[in-house]
Amino acid sequence: MSRYSRITGTGSYLPPRRLTNADLVAQLAATGIESSDEWIVERTGIRARHFAGDGVYSSDLALEAAKSALTAAGITAQDIDLIIVATSTPDMVFPSTACILQAKLGASGGAAFDLQAVCCGFVYALSVADSMIKTGAANKALVIGAEVFSRILDFTDRTTCVLFGDGAGAVVLEASEAPGILASDLHADGKHAGILCVPGHVSGGKILGDPLLKMDGQAVFKLAVGVLEDAARAALAKADLQASDIDWLIPHQANIRIMQSTARKLKLPMDKVVVTVDQHGNTSAASIPLALDTAVRAGQVKPGQTLMLEGVGGGFTWGAVVLKF
């Protein structure tokens, strides 16, 4: 008998502090940086984002999203035997945010680790958890994307600081006799590391290099639109499906223009694309599960539908997952 993995519950969490473009523009103006709501919306599609408060970490956001997903799945934290947290903004150098979250959940005993693939982290993490469940290494997994990107933004660089927000999204993935995760396609190309990175590290109690996000926006855009189409088509081919079989495309919420370009190349109308970037900004590894949960709770995504999840991020990493919800 074949063994598969299926998503049985979704959850998400946004910190209470919401900044509209007008709020952020006013904050930037106080430091002499010019921007406008129109400039941000035209280039990104973003209208608002959430920032975590002082003393709130990725594990705190992950905890709330995880509890919501567990409730939706009808299980408890003690039932979980695998936790994977995709994050580029961990609570500390070590231990992993996943282990910190495990303690907060009271779910000790199972495997727990972080996965770092930046904005494509959730796609990578979901694929890893799927593989572990299929091989019997785990039965019930929490797969979470959680970020506090506001901590690594350069608020003197208007081209990047307006893009990102904080948040968390989670899914419960369980072993099943019926297919759930149908196929995945993952890639990376390290020679592009410099176009999106935080080029700093801790050494001898000091920060060496620059601990703030740097991005070559044009280079990222050009690379993203090509590789996302390729990964989507490769995952569909592995699942023996066509783009027309997709009920919902749930992409990494980086930029509305990248999302529109991907949908156009797959010949999917935008009314089949889940869009939350306007209200959440780019929440990196959290953006796909956050968008998924938003769509589930809004009644858009329904059981039995076919979903395409895809992301691209620093590394450079990219990938796609096709699943039956």
Score class of each variant (00 low, 15 high):
Ile258Met: 10
Ile250Thr: 04
Lys265Asp: 10
Trp248Phe: 13
Ala254Pro: 05
His252Lys: 06
Lys265Ala: 14
Lys265Tyr: 12
Leu268Ala: 10
Leu266Gly: 08
Val273Asp: 07
Gln260Ile: 07
Thr276Val: 02
Pro251Thr: 06
Val273His: 08
Gln260Val: 06
Gly281Asn: 01
Val274Ser: 12
Gln279Ala: 00
Ala254Gln: 03
Ile256Ser: 09
Leu266Pro: 14
Val277Ile: 06
Arg257Cys: 02
Arg257Phe: 01
Asp245Tyr: 04
Pro251Gln: 03
Val277Lys: 01
Leu266Tyr: 13
Met259Asp: 08
Gly281Ala: 00
Pro269Tyr: 13
Met270Ala: 05
Ile256Gln: 10
Ile258Thr: 06
Ile258Gly: 06
Ile256Phe: 09
His252Leu: 04
Asp247Cys: 04
Ala254Asp: 02
Met270Gln: 07
Ile256Gly: 06
Asn255Trp: 07
Trp248Cys: 11
Met270Asp: 06
Asp278Ile: 00
Leu268Phe: 13
Ser244Pro: 04
His280Leu: 00
Met259Pro: 06
Lys265Thr: 10
Lys267Trp: 12
Leu268Asn: 09
Ala243His: 14
Val277Tyr: 01
Ile256Pro: 05
Val277Phe: 01
Leu249Gln: 14
Asn282Ile: 03
Ile258Trp: 12
Ser244Gln: 09
Ala263Thr: 14
Ala243Met: 08
Arg264Pro: 15
Gln253His: 10
Val275Tyr: 11
Ile246Met: 14
Leu249Pro: 15
Ser261Glu: 14
Leu268Trp: 12
Asn255Ser: 07
Gln260Leu: 07
Pro269Glu: 12
Gln260Ser: 14
Leu249Met: 15
Gln253Ala: 07
Gln260His: 11
Val275Met: 12
Pro251Ser: 05
Gln253Tyr: 11
Leu268Met: 15
Met259Gln: 10
Asn282Cys: 04
Ala243Arg: 12
Thr283Ile: 02
Asp271Ile: 07
His280Cys: 00
Thr283His: 01
Met270Asn: 08
Pro251Asn: 04
Thr262Phe: 15
His252Ser: 03
Val275Ala: 10
Pro251Phe: 03
Asp245His: 02
Asn255Gly: 05
Pro251Ala: 05
Leu268His: 12
Leu266Glu: 11
Leu268Cys: 13
His280Pro: 00
Asp278Arg: 01
Asp245Ser: 05
Asp278Gly: 03
Lys272Tyr: 10
His252Gly: 02
Val273Met: 11
Met259Val: 14
Ser244Met: 04
Leu266Asn: 14
Gln260Cys: 07
Ile246Gly: 08
Thr276Gly: 06
Thr276Arg: 05
Thr276Ile: 02
His252Arg: 04
Val275Pro: 02
Val277Cys: 01
Gln253Pro: 12
Arg257Tyr: 01
Ala243Trp: 12
Gln279Pro: 00
Ala254Arg: 04
Ile256Tyr: 08
Asp271Ala: 02
His280Ser: 00
Arg264Ala: 15
Gln279Cys: 00
Asp278Asn: 02
Val275Gly: 05
Lys265Trp: 14
Ile250Tyr: 03
Gln260Ala: 13
Ala263Ser: 13
Gly281Ser: 01
Thr276Ser: 08
Ile250Trp: 10
Ser244Asn: 05
Gln279Ile: 01
Val274Ile: 15
Ala254Lys: 04
Thr276Trp: 06
Ala254Val: 03
Ile258Glu: 05
Ala254His: 03
Leu249His: 14
Lys272Gly: 05
Asn282Gln: 05
Pro269Ala: 11
His252Phe: 06
Asp278Pro: 01
Met259Tyr: 08
Gln253Lys: 09
Thr262Ala: 12
Ala243Glu: 15
Ala254Glu: 02
Pro269Trp: 12
Arg257Ala: 00
Gln253Gly: 08
Thr276Pro: 03
